[in-house]
Design a protein around this nucleic acid. Sequence first.
DNA 1: CCATCTTTGTGCACGCGTTCACAAAGACAT
DNA 2: ATGTCTTTGTGAACGCGTGCACAAAGATGG
Lengths: 264, 264
Amino acid sequence: MATGRTHRPATRSRGIPEATVARLPLYLRALTALSERSVPTVSSEELAAAAGVNSAKLRKDFSYLGSYGTRGVGYDVEYLVYQISRELGLTQDWPVVIVGIGNLGAALAGYGGFASRGFRVAALIDADPAMTGKPVAGIPVQHSDDLEKIISEDGVSIGVIATPAGVAQQVCDRLVAAGVTSILNFAPTVLSVPDGVDVRKVDLSIELQILAFHEQRKAGEEAGAESGPEAGTETGAPTAPPAARTGGSSRKGPDGDVPAVMPA
Amino acid sequence: MATGRTHRPATRSRGIPEATVARLPLYLRALTALSERSVPTVSSEELAAAAGVNSAKLRKDFSYLGSYGTRGVGYDVEYLVYQISRELGLTQDWPVVIVGIGNLGAALAGYGGFASRGFRVAALIDADPAMTGKPVAGIPVQHSDDLEKIISEDGVSIGVIATPAGVAQQVCDRLVAAGVTSILNFAPTVLSVPDGVDVRKVDLSIELQILAFHEQRKAGEEAGAESGPEAGTETGAPTAPPAARTGGSSRKGPDGDVPAVMPA
DNA sequence: CCATCTTTGTGCACGCGTTCACAAAGACAT
DNA sequence: ATGTCTTTGTGAACGCGTGCACAAAGATGG
Ligand SMILES: NC(=O)c1ccc[n+]([C@@H]2O[C@H](COP(=O)([O-])OP(=O)(O)OC[C@H]3O[C@@H](n4cnc5c(N)ncnc54)[C@H](O)[C@@H]3O)[C@@H](O)[C@H]2O)c1
Ligand SMILES: NC(=O)c1ccc[n+]([C@@H]2O[C@H](COP(=O)([O-])OP(=O)(O)OC[C@H]3O[C@@H](n4cnc5c(N)ncnc54)[C@H](O)[C@@H]3O)[C@@H](O)[C@H]2O)c1
């Protein structure tokens, strides 16, 4: 997963578990597709398949919202779309600012999936004076000097950070000071924010590394079940271990992994 | 969290919990920064702060990798960088293809964070003939007709999908058929893949919706503790409920939420 | 060599999330 | 009205992840 709230770890918000909240947009997307095909009702089984989850989990998720659904029939698509939208706060308009209009920021600015769900790009902000005034995706870029003014005037509470990692924390601080209380961070840094501010992060690099881990594991177990510790291709070790293995043998890898002596 | 594995739900890979694997890149990033500052050792407390996690959790995570670390001192930065890199499979080179070189795909292609960690953009692939041959971020775009050839020749096992949602599944199918076993999906669709293929997704829209949920909740509890069911501003309800509330009163929202009768 | 002090590694308890399995609800046919 | 059949809503069990708290390890100083 690319995200995770930063502060406020275990806050069961209004009785709805965090894991459920994270799935509601998934259900909503599937339901919207059904709605566009004028499908009137859907069973938990069908909807769960469309959303890629277990049907029991889906029913339990919906049970947190209340007792919608009719036994023997299923759920009314339009009604459920409305209920989930309302629960997620999508019946109102959310102005969003994007800070850092480089490659990624520009792509985000032009992304149609924004407007489709109650989000509106209120402003694009960049520190580069050469960008100021230049329209990106039809919206003129504004200079970061005006950040505070823009946020307070438009009542923006959600900010997207697409700046280089080095300046992300200070951009974040300015956003928070100006009144933003939700931040979506694309920069590969840990942001620290005061209580009451939510941060979610999207990190491409982390996702790829997780995939690489599993990929390596797949390749490893395919090449013979147990060929002993680390069969081939060491790719050059760095320095020596700290105070390498003087005497004791506490324990090694979880199950007969490579011993803690460093190669070369 | 923007992601989540799709199939193969509870696979404790090689004894390392999935949650730990997801944090390893975070530690690695923090450690790399320390390494660049030539910091020789770091305590679990310091490193945990830098990575934004609990120190006990960090120590437990590292304990799955083995007993590195020296009591009373901490962890050797270089050594740990190497161990985590190796565990994540970053000591080898991973060729990656990006399919769909539009706004997002082009941004990804130019992203420096790729190369920095053992990932190499092996090819950019698009279905638009007008794109073919055109260099994006210094790499010429290839036509999707050649997808299979590219993947088998370069031995690509990781694919990134940045096409429109409508074609994502068929692109995915082709990637998998050609030998790709790990997919990072940016299109807002649920991909179905055979066993043995890992899918991770990044969905901007979902992240924003989760933020909106919490944002709404913050605004709600700030405006008076319990003002009864749904104080103001109904934003127009759609159709009527399915077989609305004939007699029984099973139960409503979890804690005195809006009653299940629809407004208007 | 011994004492002290720092920091790791982990046992343990707890809470969240997932899944199974089933009783009850209600649609629908007769 | 009654019976059958589908599907919901949820109780209960289980496993994973988290964080506390502490014993043991080992560095450091005398
Ligand atoms: N491009 C990608 O695919 C991608 C993927 C994942 C993460 N990221 C991350 O997203 C961020 C942006 O990536 P990018 O490729 O668009 O980089 P970029 O260099 O193209 O864009 C960065 C933009 O931020 C602006 N900026 C710099 N400092 C600023 C400040 N203090 N206030 C406001 N604006 C400021 C710059 O003028 C520039 O326009 C980086 O942190 C990168 O690591 C990018
Ligand atoms: N732009 C964003 O910020 C953003 C954010 C989140 C998600 N997404 C998603 O990422 C995807 C791409 O977004 P975008 O803004 O770059 O769209 P885009 O329309 O700019 O680019 C899509 C590209 O895919 C190519 N394509 C179409 N069919 C193809 C096929 N069968 N094989 C290969 N290439 C094909 C098109 O030629 C085009 O170049 C979409 O699914 C979008 O929903 C985009």
